[in-house]
Amino acid sequence: MNNSLYQIIVIQFKSFFREPAILFWAVLFPILMAWVLGIAFTEKGEGNATVYFIYDLRKSRSLEKERTETFGKETGNPVKVKFLYKSKEEALEAVKKGEISLFIEEKGDSLIYNFDPANAEVQLTHLLIDKGWNKNASRSRMAALTTRGTRYIDFLIPGLIALGIMNTCLWGIGWNLIELRMKKLLRRMVATPMKKSTFMFALMITRIILSGFESVLLFLFAYMYFDMQLEGSLLALLLIYLGGIFAFSGIAIIVASRTSSSQVGNGLINFVSLPMMVLSGIFFNYHNFPDWAMPVIKSMPLTVLADSIRSIFIEGYSVTEILIPLLILFITGAITYIIGLRIFKWY
């Protein structure tokens, strides 16, 4: 038996796996990105700082030349400070040369912290030092938030999964269609008794499988390396995933419906995907954008998808809580499919 649905899916897979570059960009690159960003924003290494200390020489005691002390251990983000005992002239000169950005002057019983107030980092260092030295006098304590769901990586992974779904559809389906049209293969195919609906359905099934594979790999990596967990319902995740694929494959068909030029196609795909990638809060929370932009941002399919996936992963949402986003995605898919197929040029 030589079934056409099966054949179209198989050829999609073959051309995917026979192109090592696609494999790298679609599968390994997101993992690499998650790894780099995850480390960069979650596991900061020990910080270092050099601070000059100027003694009040009127007080009599034994003087040290240098001393090293670590502050902020309880934050999981400690800073190791090396104190060098110098004169005020030496300190001012070192500041000018950029060797230090903070020096502490002892005046009787008080300590004077000298630094440039515009430098946020040194401001933080001075607070850490001050807090460290006054541990017993203060009521306040610091505690690091390291529980799951509050780290940057927990924010990032669902976003990357959503981004992967968008990209696999726009490039995998959209670009594919443009290329087939360019090669006149679409025209050749519609001259056979092939059913157009079978063809489009096969493209979508392929993406469901391929993108599923990419997403699972990405999650497995985050699970093993960062101990990320799925808090919500697996069924909800599966449904929203299918909704995302459906919506974005519909969008891909519209994007690819007319052009047979690779430059125009490239431009169109970027025109659709780049604004969403920037605005939909994949890498950083979109709440930093101005209020007037919120309705637009929140109605973007990628925002809907990323927020839903995030809620399921972090906040433990179930199917009933994602019904509205699910509906939005499926309606988007249905409308774009209908319009896309109506204006679609096979030759």
Partner: peptide
Amino acid sequence: IGLSLQETKFIDKLNTEETLNLFGSFYNLP
């Protein structure tokens, strides 16, 4: 009808046999 167009191109990374199988499937051919 069977037809051949001017300067046909195919899917790059499919071989001859697979390409024929694909089109054969559109006609339900073994």
